[in-house]
């Protein structure tokens, strides 16, 4: 249960110099162990390289330096078949129905079984029974996220990468989806890497919170979240331990947010 599933060793991602701009380092010196079955949240100011990190773990991007292994196999820009990725932006196919979108990973993977039935079951589990024939643009943002969640769970990935998946949702919808995610995670024993810029969300969901520094992103500090499970994200915010933890982690994060803000002002004002 506590075996390391994802390991990053001295990982850096640099973008080569281009048109007068010097080499840009998005992240560097990232060393991180993620245990199988754990829920890890990565927080940091925007632009610190959170998405870059997820892309490298997914194999969509490759580190410039260092090494990433998943289940002891090196990932270097090669996609694994046991990874699911929920993107920040909508990534459903707009020309396919909800049902077809959820069936698609089964088709891509040539999985056996009745794709239609499996997809319908997952849609029902995320509360979208009856919407099978709709197109994504006919749904609300929260419903589209549920479809994406169903399309990710449907093929049973061992690892779930989530990039600020709920940041575009209103607070109520968001809390509901966070609770649903926790349920799904506990029932299905997945390893989750959850990127967010919202510290409350990170603490409410995760076992571990990793704080990254402002650009270039490094691991600043890691925190263990020992709040009981199962949790309800609506109630847990009023827990004393939650508040203490929040104060402690915010202490580390605040500096970085301020630095990131100063960096951006510098960029804008030369």
């Amino acid at each position: 249960m506590s075996d390391t599933l994802i390991a990053l060793r001295d990982v850096a991602r640099r973008y080569p110099a281009q048109g007068g701009r010097p080499t840009f380092t998005a992240v560097q010196d990232i060393t991180l162990d993620i245990a199988e079955g754990s829920f890890v949240a990565v927080v940091g100011p925007s632009g610190c390289g959170k998405s870059t990190l997820l892309n490298m773990i997914a194999g969509l991007d490759a580190p410039s330096e260092g090494r990433i292994t998943v289940a002891r196999e090196i990932v270097a820009g090669r996609l694994r078949d046991d990874v699911g990725y929920l993107f920040q932006k909508d990534a459903l196919l707009p020309w396919k129905t909800v049902q077809a979108n959820v069936e698609l990973p089964l088709v891509f993977r040539r999985m056996p079984g009745d794709h239609g039935r499996i997809a319908r079951e997952w849609l029902a589990r995320v509360g979208l029974a009856g919407f099978e024939g709709n197109f994504p643009h006919q749904l609300s943002g929260g419903m589209r996220k549920r479809v994406a969640l169903a399309a990710t769970f449907v093929y049973g990935p061992r690892i779930l990468l989530m990039d600020e998946p709920f940041s575009a949702l209103d607070v109520q919808t968001r809390n509901m989806m966070e609770n649903e995610l926790l349920d799904l995670w506990q029932q299905n024993n997945k390893t989750v890497v959850f990127v967010t810029h919202d510290l409350e969300e990170a603490i409410a969901l995760a076992d571990h919170v990793v704080v990254l520094t402002a650009n270039p992103g490094r691991v600043k500090k890691q925190f263990r979240v020992t709040l009981d499970r199962p949790r309800n994200v609506n109630d847990i915010r009023f827990d004393d331990r939650f508040r203490d933890l929040h104060a402690e982690i915010w202490e580390a994060l605040r500096e970085e947010v301020a630095r990131s803000y100063a960096l951006q002002r510098q960029l804008v004002h030369g």
């Binding site: 892309n55 997914a58 969509l60 996609l79 078949d81 990874v83 699911g84 990725y85 993107f87 932006k89 909508d90 990534a91 459903l92 196919l93 698609l104 990973p105 891509f108 993977r109 399309a151 990710t152 093929y155």
Partner: peptide
């Protein structure tokens, strides 16, 4: 859209 393509690739396309 790059995200749509990446998403499909992660899903096994």
């Amino acid at each position: 859209d790059r995200t749509i393509v990446d998403n499909a690739r992660v899903m096994g396309a």
